[in-house]
Design a binder for these strands. Structure first.
Lengths: 211, 211
DNA sequence: GTAAACATTTTTGGCGCCAATTTCTGCGCG
DNA sequence: CGCGCAGAAATTGGCGCCAAAAATGTTTAC
C-alpha cells in the first residue's frame, strides 16, 4: 500500500491518477487531504505534492482555500484530447512500421488475442488493462520516446474511464478486430493503413480523420 | 520581483522555466535552494514546489539527497522534441487556416514585421521574445486548446535557448522570411503550404518533413 | 609529496504545529 | 415556518525547526 522510500511522491501520483481515471472519486468531488492520507497511507506532504502534480496534469483543479476537486472534462476537451491522440499516434505509425521486428509482431498478436478472449470471459477492468497493454506495447515500437511519453500522458488524461469507453458490445468487438488490423498492417509494412486504422480506433468511428 | 499572492508558485515555475531556457543557469548546474530563494525572493517551500513541477516538465532532474540540477537534453532528445513540434504544429495548420480572420492576419503580419525589424536593431533577447510572440499568436488561431497547450509546453522544453537557436545571420533572416510565408499561406487559405512552411521553420531546413 | 581518514560546514528533506479561511451546526428572530 | 446570523468544527496552507546526508576543508600517516 505505502510506496517505497524515494519514489513515494511519484508513485502516489500514478496511483491517484489511475484511481481518478477508474472513477473511484465522483466527478467534481472535493478531495480532502485527510481522506487521501488515510486512504493511501501517505503523509500530508506527499498528498499535497501529488495533488499539485495532478493539478499540473489537469486531472484535478485547485481552488485557493477550498482545496482540490477532480476536474471533469467537458465534451469539448474530450474531443480535443481525442483529436490530439489521433495526431500523435498516427504520426507514430511510420516509425512503428520501420522498427517492428517479427518478435514484436508476434507479441502484439498475442496481446490482441488476449484482449479478444477477455471480451468474453474477463471483467471490465481486465479488458481495460489488456487494452492498455496492447496499446503501450504498440506505442513502444515508435523510436521517438518523447512522443511515446506524450501519447501515454494524453491517454491518461482522456475520457478512457471504462464506464464511458465501450458503450456497446458491438463497439468493443470492433475494437478487438481493429487490434488485429493494426498488427496486420504492421506485418504488411503498410504505414498508411496502420495510420488510418489507429485514427479510426481512437475516434471509434469507421471514417478516417480529415483534420 | 516577488510574485503575487496566490499565483506565487505557478508564477515562479514560469519565471524559473524562462530563466533556464534563457541559459541563466549553466547546463547541468546544481540548483541550490538557498540561492533560488534569495534570487527570486521566494520562500523555501515555493522553491521546492517549483522545482518539483519543473522536474515533472523534465526541465530539471532530481537526485535524492543531492538536489536538483538543470537537465541538459542530449541531441537525441532535442531531435525528438523538434520532430514532435513538427507533428503538432503542422497538424494545427488546417485549423489555423479555417479560423484566421482578416484582423488575425493583420496582427500576425505586424508581429512578423516587428521580428524582421529587430533582426537589425534589437538585442538577442528582444528577437527571441518577438519570435515567441509571433508563434504564440499563430498557435492561438488553432481551435484545439489542448494542442495549443501541448505545443507551447513543448516549445518551452525544446532547445530554443537563444544561444543555440539562430546560428548564423542567414538563418535568422530566413526565419524572418518564413514568418511572412506563413502569414501569406494563411491569407491564401492554403493549409498544405502553411503546413510545409511550419515544418521547415521548426526543423530549420528547406526540405519538408517526411515522417 | 601524496593520499587517505577525519572533522566541519553546508544543504537537503521531512515532520509538526498553528494561523487563516471556509463550512457546518444550532440558535434566535421576523 | 423560513431566513439570517453567530459560534464551532474542520480543513487548508504556510512557516520554521531539526535530523540525515553530502560536500568541503584539514590534518595526519606513510
Amino acid at each position: 500500500m505505502t510506496a517505497k522510500a524515494d519514489g513515494t511522491a511519484a508513485a502516489l501520483v500514478d496511483i491517484m491518477a489511475r484511481d481518478i481515471q477508474a472513477g473511484v472519486f465522483a466527478a467534481g468531488a472535493w478531495l480532502k487531504q485527510i481522506d487521501l492520507e488515510r486512504r493511501y497511507g501517505a503523509t500530508r506532504m506527499d498528498v499535497r505534492r501529488a495533488l499539485d502534480q495532478l493539478a499540473l496534469k489537469r486531472l484535478v483543479r485547485h481552488v485557493p482555500n477550498r482545496g482540490y476537486h477532480v476536474h471533469a472534462l467537458d465534451d469539448r476537451q474530450a474531443d480535443e484530447i481525442r483529436e490530439l491522440r489521433v495526431v500523435l499516434e498516427s504520426a507514430a505509425a511510420p516509425s512503428m512500421v520501420r522498427n517492428a521486428t517479427a518478435a514484436d509482431i508476434a507479441e502484439l498478436r498475442a496481446l490482441a488475442r488476449r484482449f479478444e478472449e477477455l471480451i468474453l470471459t474477463g471483467t471490465l477492468l481486465e479488458q481495460y488493462e489488456a487494452n492498455i497493454a496492447f496499446h503501450v506495447r504498440l506505442l513502444r515500437l515508435c523510436s521517438n520516446r518523447e512522443l511515446i511519453n506524450m501519447a501515454l500522458e494524453l491517454r491518461g488524461r482522456g475520457p478512457s474511464a471504462p464506464a464511458t469507453q465501450w458503450k456497446t458490445r458491438a463497439r468493443i468487438e470492433q475494437s478487438g478486430r481493429e487490434h488485429f488490423m493494426m498488427v496486420d498492417a504492421l506485418a504488411a509494412g503498410d504505414a498508411d493503413l496502420l495510420r488510418s486504422v489507429i485514427a479510426a480506433h481512437i475516434q471509434q468511428s469507421e471514417a478516417q480523420t480529415t483534420l
